[in-house]
Design a protein around this nucleic acid. Structure first.
Length: 556
RNA sequence: GUCUCCGUAGCUCAGCUGGAUAGAGCAACGCCCUUCUAAGGCGUGGGUCAUAGGUUCGAAUCCUAUCGGGGACGCCA
């Protein structure tokens, strides 16, 4: 349609590539190009629009595209497309792969999850997992080769703290004979963390242990491995429940293995500067509005830092995958850190591809500060899931007899859709009600729509006539045509909420169709047309839900 | 203090590469189950898009300032 518009504009002597956009007025689409042309061509927009509409109407192909094209207001061109146009587009779309989205074939490493070993997953980890997985799914869908990495925080200070705790609790046992379990971990970490805040000596000791662990102390290594094994299997269990998966379960400890190669390389670049005994990379750039602090590579005591491990990780990824892009789905509060790391990676000639940080907002409590339970701790992710499940089951009698697998799928849908419908970079206030709703703009609403329609569809020829049978039918067909651009937009901006939003819109439109177009009792072409449409509608819902990481239950 | 994100209906949020009367959900009220799942559909009320300027034919959207909130700001991660 845009091509036809361009042809007409050009033939009238206007040099533009006009855009046709969705209209929120009474038309299907509109073209607002005439306003921009008015100045250059010294003509009123209405006049230009009039010329375009007249010429359009004289085109032999007019009926293939339009039912009605008219000038509105001060110079808008309103477009109502013909039924044939809608069906032509739909037929084309149905014949395309990946729902008409544009294909890509980049190699992209995507870093999300980021749990800390020895600490349980809490609500803050939900966002990285859910958003990261969705972005991963979308990029993969478009044909990219994605490599997901959980990037465990497995060798930071908390490890030193827990190891010290173990040494206190098991003073006389040989490290290989010490037996600990998950409950022990869940008690010891908070205990030691609190102790470090009170007691400088304990804190210093923990830091020392951390440093020696990083340097490979054999005793600490043994204990460390025990902690990692325990914790990681627990973390995996929760991610599995959420259907969040990683190709790589690397952590900071893997990055540390790169330092033997990376540090001399950085030295050779001549960018490591000694400063108060520490080694830094100056990452200031001209035009900075704010003074970006230098990137700290090595502490004065020789220990490496957060930024160093992220650089090591990049080093490894470049070596292993030569990625076109590395993207991070990590808490937005770390944006300064990533600016430093990205610049350091560039300046140190470690990587010259695309580095992106998609920082998401925090999950806040009523006080608008990062969420804490009444007792002051973070709400465990597992407890959130349990709560949602309980609420869901108690919602109505039928739910009590529901298939366990189906319940879990719906719980997943509730939680994920509640999170994914928000723009990822915003904070939101955590409200258990938000995570237990099944009415309105929720995951279950979409599942329900799908299942309802699924029940009335039967085989179809997959063909469409040129007929459209009602307003609600027309609306559904038009809505389906938007899917390609929605996927592209979500992928380009790495914003899954575009998909969530569209999925909801589509479901509303489909529910409308369902309510107003009775299928039973139909036969012949109309029945076949309806079946084709509904099949395609559900194919779209299915596909997009999958991209959001939501599975469809058998019944609800 | 500097930088940054944000301020849209009672509540929770979309919309922000500028377009015509600003959209959803929840909550409130009214209607629709002898007809493909009422976890549904239809309708009503509810807004100076924080405030003030500016750019523009046109601003919730872009620019500036102010107010209010979150966050970040060198040896933690």
């Amino acid at each position: 349609m845009e091509q036809l518009f361009e042809k007409v504009f050009k033939e009238l002597g206007y040099d533009v590539t006009p855009k046709v956009v969705k209209s929120n007025k009474d038309a299907d689409f509109q073209c607002d190009e005439c306003f921009k042309l008015a100045k250059d061509y010294h003509k009123a927009p209405v006049m230009i629009a009039g010329e375009v509409v007249d010429k359009l109407k004289a085109e032999p192909e007019f009926d293939n595209y339009f039912k009605e094209v008219s000038v509105a207001g001060p110079g808008f061109i309103n477009i109502i497309v013909s039924d044939k146009y809608i069906n032509d587009q739909l037929r084309k779309l149905m014949g395309k792969e990946i729902l008409g989205a544009t294909k890509e074939d980049k190699t992209i490493v995507i870093d999300y999850g980021g749990p800390n070993v020895a600490k349980p997953l809490h609500v803050g980890h939900l966002r990285s997992a859910v958003i990261g997985q969705a972005i991963n799914n979308i990029l993969k869908f478009k044909g990219n080769n994605t490599i997901s990495d959980v990037h465990l925080g497995d060798i930071g200070t908390q490890m030193g703290q827990v190891i010290y705790g173990i040494l206190i609790d098991f003073p006389d046992t040989k490290p290989e004979d010490i037996e600990i379990d998950l409950d022990y971990l869940n008690v010891t970490y908070p205990k030691m963390s609190a102790l470090c805040k009170e007691d400088e000596k304990v804190k210093a000791k923990c830091l020392q242990i951390t440093k020696e662990l990083q340097d490979g102390d054999p005793t600490y290594r043994i204990l460390w491995q025990k902690i990692v094994d325990l914790s990681v299997s627990d973390i995996k269990r929760i991610y599995d429940y959420l259907d969040v998966h990683f190709d790589l379960w690397y952590g900071e400890s893997h990055a540390y293995k790169q330092f033997d190669e990376m540090m001399p390389y950085l030295e050779k670049q001549g960018i490591l500067i000694e400063d108060d005994g520490a080694k830094i990379i100056d990452v200031k750039e001209e035009g900075d509005k704010i003074e970006i602090p230098p990137c700290l590579i090595q502490k004065s005591d020789g220990a490496y830092l957060y930024a160093t491990s992220d650089l090591g990780t990049i080093w490894q990824r470049v070596k292993d995958f030569k990625p076109d892009e590395i993207i991070y789905v990590v808490d937005g509060r770390q944006s300064m850190h990533f600016v430093q790391v990205f610049r350091a990676a560039n300046k140190g000639k470690i990587y010259n591809g695309v580095l992106q940080h998609h920082g998401f907002g925090t999950v806040n409590g009523e006080d608008n500060k990062p969420f804490k339970t009444r007792s002051g701790g973070a709400l465990k992710l597992e407890d959130l899931i349990k709560q949602v499940k309980e609420v869901f089951i108690s919602l109505r009698e039928e739910n009590k007899n529901m298939d366990e697998e189906d319940i879990d799928k719906i719980v997943n849908a509730i939680i994920k859709f509640a999170d994914l419908q928000n723009n990822l970079e915003r904070n939101y206030i955590f409200d258990i009600k938000k995570f237990s709703g099944v009415a309105g703009k929720t995951g279950p609403y979409i599942l329900y729509t799908y299942l309802r329609i699924n029940k009335i569809i039967s085989e179809s020829s997959g063909k469409l006539s040129n007929a459209i049978y009602s307003e609600t039918d027309r609306a559904l067909r038009l809505k389906m045509l938007e899917v390609s651009s929605v996927i592209d937009q979500a992928s380009k901006e790495r914003r899954p909420h575009y998909l969530a939003d569209y999925l909801y819109d589509l479901s509303v439109t489909a529910n409308n169709f369902y309510q107003n177009n009775k299928v039973s009792g139909l036969d012949g072409i109309q029945k076949d047309d309806f079946m084709t449409i509904l099949n395609f509608n559900n194919y779209i819902i299915e596909t997009l839900l999958e991209l959001l990481g939501i599975k469809i239950p058998k019944a609800m």
